[in-house]
């Protein structure tokens, strides 16, 4: 589904990504973890086209999209949410999702009713009750769910979620986990998940990558990665400290 091939990014003196390579297979939830400042968000920006890598390639379903504008990548089935909330603050919850569904209708041949799509998705993430609230009055946790619903409205085949669980309470984050598993269940969709809530990542991911100082230091099945001494030193070590 997604291949990231030796991607490098530098900001002035800081090398934020040092030759990152990873794969997201079809129909899977892949976790991406790492300490603060490791480069996870930067990698998301490279994949979605908000950041140009100084070297390396990004392939979507085998097609090189490295030079493609963000909105064209979106049309190829790439969706995301943002760590720093990016909702449309002048619109209601429903309109936020509606706008994405309408956008999809305008560039795809799919002419499902955007209003229905929006309401269905809001029901799925559990926000139907507040769909007519303005988003600028909602707490951050709920805004993350608005972003998830909005991203789903574009019907992406690959969904990048940047810390969707932060700001959610235990029940909410459990529901989110269920939703993620459900989303990939039919095999048509993949998710790349950045999340600090280790429990959530462990539960839903079938595969895990660990990023530290801009480099992948471990990859593999969640249990296996958890045991990796390098990971414990870099990531779990710091979070335990």
């Amino acid at each position: 589904m997604l291949q990231v091939d030796r991607v490098e990014v530098r900001f002035g003196g800081v090398q934020a990504l040092k030759g990152v390579t990873l794969d997201v297979p079809e129909g899977a939830v892949v976790g991406l973890i790492g300490p603060n400042g490791a480069g996870k968000t930067t990698l998301f920006n490279v994949i979605t086209g908000l950041e140009r890598p100084s070297a390396g390639r990004v392939l979507l379903s085998g097609e090189d999209v490295t030079g493609l504008a963000p909105h064209l990548r979106a049309r190829k089935g790439l969706g995301r949410t943002f760590q720093r909330i990016e909702v449309f603050s002048s619109l209601t919850v429903h309109e936020n999702v509606l706008a994405a569904a309408e956008a999809r209708r305008s560039w795809s041949r799919d002419d499902a009713d955007p209003g229905r799509t929006a309401s269905d998705l809001l029901e799925r993430v559990g926000l139907l009750e507040i769909e007519h609230e303005r988003v600028d009055r909602l707490p951050t946790g709920l805004l993350r769910l608005v972003e998830v619903a909005r991203a789903l409205a574009s019907q992406p085949r690959l969904l990048l979620l940047d810390e969707p669980g932060s700001g959610l309470d235990t029940t909410e984050s459990e529901a989110l986990g269920d939703l993620l598993v459900e989303l990939v269940a039919d095999g048509s969709r993949s998710i790349l998940l950045v999340e600090h809530d280790v429990e959530l990542v462990m539960r839903v991911s079938s595969h895990l990558h660990v990023l530290d100082f801009g480099a992948i230091i471990a990859s593999g099945a969640p249990e296996q990665v958890q045991q990796d001494p390098a990971v414990q030193a870099a990531y779990l070590g710091t979070s335990a400290a």
């Binding site: 990016e86 994405a100 560039w107 991203a151």
Partner: peptide
Amino acid sequence: IALNDSPAASATMG
């Protein structure tokens, strides 16, 4: 309005 509120999010909607 979406484009005005968040150009980045609009782009990710295509």
